[in-house]
């Protein structure tokens, strides 16, 4: 076990996987000598050299597209997009090329690559350093999308992603990069499967569902509720494509009330899918409508960096509404 924060968990996992498998390489802007602007690739350049830790031109289309060309030729590239907000210059590569490689070739080619993207707000970055673009990727058939919230899950899901034979977008909660530390299993096989949610707390009054950076506010909401005698079940989805429908439906059916917390824009956010599925599958079990607490449908603002994010106050208000319904 190592006590790691989230970036250390990323660097440590990349190190272990590169040591294990020569075909694993890292590419992106500043990932080499600089070790990445968030230092998530720190130490790798010294250990593995410029061939396997590639400082790329400042072009997301080149990074994502080249990662594809490498992957079909036998490598397992892990590309870093400096901020998830900069995935868009490479969006066509991701949507038109990477995601459809297996499908359009009838399974003849496949693209085992990973694209890491620091994501989410609360870092005073304004709208070009704070967005949560997960819905774009979930809406693109052929991509796996995961958004872990803890060092241990990040390590385990990154490892699963690197070993996956399909392309994986790993969204990383940059607000939590250094804010959370925990013991991460040193086991070089520590892997978290996709499509499995984690029930982080159990309670009978309401189910709080979240993922990624919003897990922090969700967890604090659950603790504030606990202090007031209300017990929440807290589900960390961790993986969005595929997502763990069964765990969500079992818990929500058992409790009858749920509040869905995510920090991306409200309309057609990922939680809209979760809410619709709950309504389709277990309407009869509901004591209250599924309630979403999310970011607002505005570009991410600079000055209102914190107010934009869904926090415990809004979560608790939603819980009250669910309890009153």
């Amino acid at each position: 076990m190592s006590e790691w924060n989230l970036v250390q968990a990323i660097a440590g996992t990349l190190d272990a996987e590169m040591a294990r498998d020569e075909s694993v390489i890292v590419l992106g802007e500043d990932v080499g000598k600089r070790g990445g602007v968030f230092l998530a690739t720190r130490g790798l350049f010294d250990r593995y050299g410029p061939d396997r830790v590639i400082d790329t031109p400042l072009s997301e289309a080149a990074i994502i597209g080249a990662a594809l060309g490498m992957s079909v030729h036998g490598l397992r590239p892990v590309a870093e997009i400096q901020f998830a907000d900069y995935a868009f210059p490479g969006f066509d590569q991701l949507v038109s090329q990477v995601a459809k490689t297996r499908y359009r070739s009838g399974g003849a080619f496949h693209a085992p690559l990973v694209i890491r993207m620091p994501s989410g707000g609360g870092v005073k970055g304004g709208h070009h350093h704070s967005q949560n673009p997960e819905t774009h990727f979930v809406h693109t058939a052929g991509l796996h999308v995961v958004y872990p919230s803890t060092p241990s899950d990040t390590a385990g899901m990154l490892r699963t992603a690197i070993r996956s034979d399909d392309p994986v977008v790993v969204l990383e909660p940059k607000r939590l990069y250094r804010a959370v530390k925990e013991q991460v299993p040193a086991d070089p096989e520590h892997a978290v499967p996709f499509g499995s949610a984690m029930v982080r707390k159990r309670g009978d009054d309401v189910v709080l569902i979240s993922y990624g950076a919003s897990m922090a506010e969700t967890a604090r909401s659950a603790e504030a509720l606990h202090a007031q005698g209300i017990e929440a079940t807290v589900i960390d989805l961790r993986s969005l494509m595929p997502w763990d429908r069964d765990t969500v439906l079992q818990e929500v059916a058992r409790v009858g009330r749920c509040v869905l917390v995510s920090e991306g824009p409200h309309t057609v956010g990922f939680m809209s899918e979760v809410a619709a599925t709950i309504a389709e599958e277990i309407l009869d079990a509901l004591l209250a409508p599924p309630l979403r607490v999310s970011g607002y449908d505005t570009p991410y603002p600079y000055a209102q960096d914190r107010e934009y994010l869904p926090g415990p106050r809004r979560v608790l208000n939603a819980v009250q509404r669910a309890l009153d319904y």
Partner: peptide
């Protein structure tokens, strides 16, 4: 784990 993290209008 998350108690040290900031963010959110709370």
């Amino acid at each position: 784990l998350f108690t040290a993290s900031g963010g959110g209008d709370d």
